[in-house]
Design a protein around this nucleic acid. Structure first.
Lengths: 224, 224
DNA sequence: CCAAAAGTGTTAGTGATACACCCATGT
DNA sequence: ACATGGGTGTATCACTAACACTTTTGG
């Protein structure tokens, strides 16, 4: 079981972990995937999902694997963040972590909270409990990277369902950036960047004009 | 001697290195500090200066130490870049490197090329030989980060002498960005950002009007 | 007085922001 | 017919880019 390695680390060598800062939007809030630690150190505290990289494993593979173990989701875009490697950041030994940023559409996830697995939960980003290790700092970096990417790339594709209305997309932007956007300017910009394509279907729901559905032209992560 | 550790690495553990992509301007060219490897692997090839992190050493300390060993310079600003950790990037074992970006004024450096030390040289960035490891990729990342920072921060302070003319500063920008800039726009922008302060002295040299000298207001690295 | 680099403002264009009304539907 | 969210264009402002001549010195 994967935590075995964690009980006793040698003091004379480096260990490498990956952590994933996975954001989603749920209940109109920006949320972050956290797991509750079942073992020391920081037993009982919340932490980013992640774990030790295997000696013959690529970093991205390792995050992908950890993430799949926690969420059942694979194949999502992962963006490398600067390493955290201060002496003392892990009381067990010298552990360097490579954090990754990811976005995910919460509809596509079933969190595993069965049996022995650590309890995984979506936590509102602005109401985080005290976290294990230096994970709060990692999250700060991840969030500002996320906002940065959101304005420069099509990363939003990862957080949206396959088909969505422009209002839904704008709401996602607003939730992530934590500020209101102008509807006409938002749509004009989308047109100029031609990031999304109009579908023929509409979404009929509620007592009002049906909304046109759109999809991203490409889910490949790319700049504007 | 520092290479001792490198001869035989264990295959079942991680090793951590830091590498420094140190840029300077010399002979009107953007140059990069490279060392020639005296030992395998990649014996005889050029590589970024760097080395193994000690188990109780902070990453930044480690780069600082390596850099001081190579160049005699300390206390310069170092910016962390994304880690490189692919399996197989070092034939000796699983070595993860944290690269750092730095700029330095070549006037302040005396390269050590004495005795046992590896030969350190300034190499023009656009005419690099084939490099060891994945260092060419690291350099590509470092260079684009450098250009990015140059337009958003006062990082240029690190590459300039204490006192300089605005033409010299503009030339440095042009060399790094590899494109011409407009003199009046450049100066207007400097004024708006108030990044530099005017000194009372002038630089009298050559058969033309003397140029006013300037210095950076702060060498602290900060955004605009 | 000529050569050489220093120094200095204005205009046009482009992108960002602010803003208000009509439309299609369900009840 | 009214309530609800969907959908659309224009005017202003701010920032960026383009551009040419005068100044001061040494030779």
């Amino acid at each position: 079981m994967k935590d075995t390695i964690m009980f006793q680390l040698r003091k004379d060598q480096f260990y490498l972990t990956v952590d994933a800062a996975v954001f989603t939007i749920l209940d109109k809030q920006l949320k972050l995937l956290l797991i509750r630690r079942k073992y020391p150190p920081f037993e009982g505290r919340y932490a980013l999902p992640g774990g030790f990289v295997r000696i013959d494993e690529f970093l991205k593979q390792a995050v992908g694997r950890e993430l799949e173990e926690e969420t059942g989701v694979k194949g999502i875009f992962l963006q490398k963040l600067p390493a955290f490697g201060d002496v003392g950041r892990d009381p067990r030994g010298r552990v360097i972590t490579i954090p990754y940023l990811a976005l995910i559409n919460s509809e596509e996830v079933r969190l595993h909270s069965t049996g022995d697995a650590e309890l995984a939960r979506w936590q509102p980003v602005y109401e985080l409990p005290e976290l294990a290790f230096d994970h709060q700092r990692i999250i700060d970096v991840a969030l500002s990277k996320l906002r940065d990417e959101l304005e420069r790339t099509n990363i939003a594709a990862d957080i949206m369902p396959a088909r969505f209305t422009l209002t839904e997309l704008q709401t996602a932007y607003e939730i992530i950036l934590d500020r209101k956007l102008d509807k006409r300017n938002f749509r004009k910009r989308l047109r100029e960047l031609s990031m999304v394509k109009e579908l023929s279907e509409t979404k009929m729901e509620g007592a009002h004009r049906p909304a046109r559905l759109y999809s991203f032209r490409s889910k490949d992560h790319k700049g504007i």
